[in-house]
């Protein structure tokens, strides 16, 4: 489903060159719930941006759903993001001037689905996250946990290949974080693949697989491999 092989990414300014990812390899299979952890500056976010087609990479190969994405133009990447990936952001990234219905509708409109189908998908996804009765509310009228649920509904509504979550509980208190994690677990159990970037090891432990990143490299793959990680030691 998602295959990265020796992916590298270097950020350059006039004077500084920073290697964000080097020889980064990872395979995510259908139905996986993968947690990616690492300290600040380890390359987690760069990995997430590249995996989510938000940023380009310099070397290596990245195949999404079996197809290389390396030479795709901006429009094709936009379409892939829209149709294959559901994003969940740390800060929820809901549009404050739109109600919940319109927020969830945003990616569906970019897909140019008809009105009836969009409505059905929006209602269903808001129902999944338990907010179907608050469709006309604005994000500001919800708690942080509820806003993240809306973001999850927005990600689910497009029926994506996988969800890409960037610190989904990073801005929530522990109770709300637990609630959101439970929701993600339920979604995963229902068959949706999830890749989650987090610095919270406790949340990462709840994932089916746990990848650790350090200095732009995968230093440990899969808790089933039982390799001792300095982060978990």
């Amino acid at each position: 489903m998602l295959t990265m092989h020796n992916v590298s990414k270097v950020f350059r300014t006039d004077t500084v060159e920073t290697t964000a990812l080097q020889s980064f390899s990872l395979q995510v299979n259908e139905g996986d719930f993968v947690a990616v952890t690492g300290p600040s500056g380890s390359g987690k976010t760069t990995f997430l941006n590249i995996a989510g087609l938000l940023e380009s990479f310099d070397d290596g190969e990245y195949k999404l759903d079996g197809h290389s994405v390396k030479n795709l133009n901006d429009k094709a990447l936009s379409q892939l993001r829209n149709q294959k990936i559901g994003f969940i952001f740390q800060s929820f990234n809901l549009i404050p001037d739109l109600n919940l219905f319109d927020n969830v509708d945003v990616p569906l409109r970019y897909r140019k689905l008809n009105k009836a189908e969009r409505k059905q998908r929006i209602e269903h996804s808001l129902e999944v996250v338990g907010l179907a009765n608050r469709m006309k509310h604005l994000p500001s009228q919800l708690s942080g946990g509820q806003q993240q649920r809306v973001a999850i509904a927005r990600a689910l509504a497009g029926d994506p290949l996988f969800l890409l979550a960037d610190e989904p509980t990073g801005n929530l208190d522990s109770k709300m974080a637990d609630s959101v994690m439970s929701l993600l677990e339920d979604i995963n159990k229902a068959g949706t693949t999830i890749v989650m970037v987090t610095h919270d090891l406790a949340q990462a432990e709840r994932a089916q697989r746990h990848i650790q990143v350090l200095d732009g490299k995968v230093t440990e793959q899969d808790k089933q491999a039982a390799v001792v990680s300095p982060l978990r030691a």
């Binding site: 989510g52 938000l54 901006d74 429009k75 936009s78 379409q79 993001r81 829209n82 149709q83 994003f87 952001f89 800060s91 990234n93 549009i95 945003v106 990616p107 970019y110 897909r111 927005r154 497009g158």
Partner: peptide
């Protein structure tokens, strides 16, 4: 941020 989010959610430059 909102524009970036829209782009992430599938909006093309157009």
């Amino acid at each position: 941020r909102q524009i970036g989010t829209r782009r992430a959610l599938g909006a093309s430059r157009g």
